[in-house]
Every structure is written in structure tokens, then in C-alpha cells.
Design a protein around this nucleic acid. Structure first.
Lengths: 156, 156
DNA sequence: ACCGGTGAGTAGGAAATCCGAACTCACCAT
DNA sequence: ATGGTGAGTTCGGATTTCCTACTCACCGGT
């Protein structure tokens, strides 16, 4: 992911350049759950330690995580999500909702997140303006920058 | 991404095993925009052709894309999203919203998606049960399967 | 018939990444 | 003095990725 190769300007590509590498989003999952220590991350994610160290540096540089000292002597660190990092959690929830629906169709979800309203969270992406759920059929692309060529949907 | 190494059962990890490889989500972006032909994908994503071919095979196998013949002679193909693929589009919209907010703070978004309600789409992830936006503070994890050890959030 | 162009890949080797295990270093506990 | 934990770094080798070039089938013009 070093040379982002931007044939098109795109916030999706830009975001993925920061968090699209292997393990990055799983790191965020663990950090959001409160498991922010290096060895916890190694165990819970199953990533090689050196890769994890690289990812953590990158995420800290990107302003998504911070590295906090939680014990002076012995020196011990913990990674936490910044506000920008916490705001990526909805992405994880949306991904989880998709995985629950399409990969665990029998309802045997490996993990349930409870929302403050008391119900198990089922994440739905909505339009902030009208509140309706976002469906493909309701979307129309309007490129703002050069580099885009978009075909309208053709007849099925 | 070959050996998924599941230290924990997790729909997020499962979903990322399918679409978390480099370029996969960008392929989905293009396909959702209607640019589903091989050479369009190559140009618009900037991926090497062989990698792209590998990704496309994987996404078709996973049931996220289908490969359709749109011209017999000369034989020409087009990739399209299945329903499962289209249901990943909200993930892209959420990621785009995050990128717009955190990576293009000046409002110079490279691309605007218009919603059928007439407004530019600002994607918000909400709880299906209560309709409130999902914020980190409102979530509590409840592992359903063994392999999870979750620390509650500690005092700041 | 010949030439150039397009679409959809495949082939080959160099470059970058990833992996697992071992190693370090600092500290604490017995 | 020995062992254990946390937080990494180092090492060589395996795996992927990248880039360029090539193929193969077809079409369109002259």
C-alpha cells in the first residue's frame, strides 16, 4: 500500500490506503474492545509481531490510534483509538452486519454487540438527510474531480 | 490472505477474508458504478492485470460478483455485483463518509453520491432497533463463541 | 489479404511483503 | 539466580505483488 497509485481521486481509496492493509481493521476492532496492548493484539489477531508493529506505527501516524504509557516502570504501553479511530467503528459494525447476514446465515453469530437501547445491534447505513436506509438503487454518482468515467446501470 | 488464521471467530474477520485484500473493495466500487469490464477495472483502479484477474475470481467464487457474457462474438465479459455484493455498498459509503470527513476536511470531496431523496448522501450507521446513530460509547460486546477476552474500557 | 486496435486475460522475473521463530532489553517475582 | 512478562526487533525464507510483455480472438478499414 506504499504507493497509492491514484488513478482516481476517491475517499474510499484514500481511506483504504490508511486502514486497508491486512490486519489494520482487526487492530481497530481489538482496540475498540479495549484490548490495546501489544501482546493482546498479537494473540487476538494472530498477526506476526513485526507486521503488527508496522501496522501500529502506521495507524498512529495516521492519527487513528495513540500510544499511551500506562506504566512508567516497567514501561508498558497501550494503544487507544483517537476520535477519528472511534469513528471508524461504524465501518466495522457495517462489515459485521454483512458478515452475520451472508456468512452466518443460521443466526449463529460469533459475537453480538449490544446497543444502549437494549437491543442487539443490527447496523443499518442510512442517509443523514432523509433517514432512509441506503440501497444501491437509490444512489447516483456525481464525480467532482477529473478522472472519473461512470457508466449508468445498463438494462439487465 | 490464504490461511485465515482465526484466533477468534468474528464476522468482521470473515468478511475481510473475502473482501479485505488489496483492490477488492475498489473493484466493488467500480462494479457498483457500472464499470464492470476488465480493462475499465484495470484503468480505473490501477491494479496489475494479473492481480485483478485473481481478485475477480475470488469475488466470483465468494458470490459477490458474477461474470456475465455481454457479447458472444467477440466474446466479452462484464462483472456485476450480486445481491450480496450490492449489500456491501453501504460499507463503501460508510468508508467514503469517513474519508470525506477526516481526509478531505475542506469539503473538497472527490465524489458526491446523490441519494434518491435529492440530497448528497451523507452515510450514517444507525441501530436498526432504535434508529439512533451508532457511537462507540453506546456499544457493549457480548461474545457468543469461545475465544474472546474483552476488557471493558478503562478509566481515561 | 493485411494492418492496427480492443478486450480479456497469461507468463516471467524482479521487488516488496509476509511469516515464524528466535532474540533483545528492561523489569519484576521467588 | 532463575523464570516470567511486555514490547518489541532481527533473521532467513516463503509468498505476493508488481511491471512489462506476450497471447489469442475478433473487428474494422483499405
Amino acid at each position: 500500500m506504499a504507493a497509492p497509485k491514484h488513478p482516481r481521486p476517491c475517499s474510499i481509496a484514500d481511506a483504504l490506503a490508511l486502514v486497508g492493509e491486512k490486519y489494520s481493521l482487526l487492530v481497530l476492532r481489538e482496540v475498540c474492545l479495549g484490548n490495546g496492548r501489544f501482546d493482546q493484539l498479537v494473540r487476538n489477531i494472530g498477526a506476526p509481531r513485526d507486521i503488527l508493529a508496522t501496522r501500529l506505527r502506521r495507524l498512529v501516524d495516521a492519527g487513528i490510534l495513540t500510544k499511551r504509557l500506562y506504566s512508567e516502570r516497567p514501561q508498558r504501553f497501550e494503544y487507544r483509538a483517537t476520535r477519528a479511530g472511534l469513528e471508524l467503528e461504524p465501518v466495522l459494525m457495517t462489515l459485521m452486519a454483512w458478515g452475520d447476514r451472508h456468512l452466518h446465515p443460521d443466526g449463529d453469530r460469533p459475537m453480538v454487540i449490544e446497543h444502549s437501547c437494549g437491543k442487539p445491534l443490527a447496523a443499518v447505513v442510512t442517509c443523514a438527510a432523509c433517514g432512509d436506509p441506503v440501497r444501491h438503487e437509490d444512489l447516483t454518482a456525481h464525480p467532482q474531480a477529473p478522472g472519473w468515467t461512470v457508466s449508468g446501470p445498463e438494462a439487465a
